[in-house]
Computed example of a mutant assay.
Amino acid sequence: MRRATITTTHGDEDAAMRVAASLAPDNTAEMTTCVDGDAVVTTVTRERTGGLRSTVDDYVVNCRVAARLGGGESEAERSTAQTDDTPDTDTNT
Rank of each mutant, 00 (worst) to 15 (best):
E47P: 01
A76N: 13
E73L: 11
M31H: 04
M31N: 03
R46D: 05
H10M: 04
G70E: 05
T45V: 15
E30P: 00
C63M: 12
P25Q: 02
T91Y: 06
T9M: 01
A15Q: 04
D14F: 00
S54Q: 13
G11F: 08
G11A: 11
R46Q: 13
R46N: 05
R64Q: 11
S79G: 12
V60I: 14
T33S: 15
D12C: 14
T80M: 09
D90Q: 08
V19H: 06
T32N: 11
S54V: 08
R46I: 01
I6V: 15
G51Y: 02
V41P: 06
R48D: 08
G70K: 07
N62S: 15
T33L: 10
G71E: 03
S54H: 08
T86L: 15
T83C: 12
T8E: 10
V60T: 09
T43V: 14
N92D: 14
T5E: 12
C63F: 00
T43C: 09
T42W: 01
R2S: 07
R78I: 12
T42M: 10
D12T: 04
T89I: 10
E73I: 12
E77C: 13
T49G: 03
M31Q: 15
D57Y: 07
S79Y: 11
R48F: 01
G51Q: 12
I6L: 15
T43N: 00
I6C: 11
A39V: 03
E30L: 08
T43K: 02
T55A: 15
V40G: 08
D88M: 02
D88I: 12
D90W: 07
Y59R: 05
N62H: 08
